[in-house]
């Protein structure tokens, strides 16, 4: 695994002012692999993603991508290296249309299969609504825009923050079906979820977080539900 790892997080700490949110978190994701990060509210999952994406600065070597330290890079430089994020709560730009939202995701276009055309092929409903305000879409459609927007830069690694939050179960299944297809195309992913079921079904590795620390880590097939529940609830 060492040579093959795409993303390596090693002994990562994170602080908000005086408050320490992460304590020595380590995680590694191989090319084309999916890592699920699960845990209760406030366990530090989002902080982990924000650190990887560059919204929170870290020590240079705490986060390495393709072997290079990226911990101190700004978010827009991290994106240019090939890490894109689907932020929690979708966070589409309300004053941009659906298509403009997608285009803005592709402003740092790395070579790869994802174009506006391809996104519309995968999510045909978005092409129908391309000139509508992004706020006029349903929650599931907005999530499609958010995923499409992240893919437009042709990332090697996709960070997904609670993409099932607030969506009906049937919509969640649909979104995950799409995600499966995207991963099958070679894009690696870190999936942060509170909903364990969906995440486990797609993941190669599982990391359970608790109060800013890794409570349990292992291959998806090797970690049992009982272990996860124990780690999740801290018993």
């Amino acid at each position: 695994m060492p040579e093959a790892a795409l993303l390596e997080v090693e002994a990562l700490d994170a602080h908000y002012g005086d408050f320490q949110a992460l304590f020595g978190v380590s995680l590694s994701v191989g090319a084309g692999q999916v890592a699920a990060v699960i845990g209760a509210n406030g366990a530090g999952k989002s902080t982990l993603l924000n650190s990887i994406s560059g919204l929170i600065r870290s020590k240079a070597n705490a986060i390495r991508f393709r072997g290079e330290p990226i911990g101190t890079l700004s978010a827009f430089r991290v994106l240019a290296r090939g890490i894109a994020m689907v932020p929690e709560g979708r966070r589409l730009f309300p004053s941009l249309t659906v298509e403009e939202n997608l285009i803005i995701g592709g402003q740092f276009k790395r070579p790869g299969p994802w174009t506006l055309k391809r996104v519309y092929e995968v999510f045909p409903i978005l092409e129908e609504r391309r000139h509508q305000a992004s706020t006029s879409l349903s929650g599931g459609q907005q999530q499609m825009v958010a995923i499409g927007r992240a893919l437009m830069s042709n990332p090697a690694l996709l960070l997904c923050d609670e993409i099932s939050l607030g969506l009906a179960p049937i919509v969640v299944r649909d979104i995950y079906a799409h995600l499966r297809g995207i991963v099958a195309g070679g894009t690696a992913a870190v999936i942060v979820e509170q909903d364990i079921g969906q995440a486990l079904a797609i993941a190669n590795t599982v990391t359970c977080m608790q109060e800013g620390r890794v409570a349990l880590q292992g291959r998806a097939g090797e970690v049992t539900r009982a272990d996860i529940q124990a780690a999740y609830f801290g018993v």
């Binding site: 994406s53 560059g54 919204l55 700004s74 978010a75 827009f76 994106l79 240019a80 894109a84 994020m85 932020p87 966070r91 730009f93 309300p94 004053s95 941009l96 403009e100 285009i103 803005i104 995701g105 402003q107 740092f108 927007r149 830069s153």
Partner: peptide
């Protein structure tokens, strides 16, 4: 494209950074 960037940054500067805008 410039206007689009202006609107995106105005809407949500944090996410704009995540989309590659400096």
């Amino acid at each position: 494209a410039l206007g689009r960037s202006f609107r995106a940054v105005s809407d949500d500067p944090r996410v704009a950074q995540l989309m590659g805008l400096n």
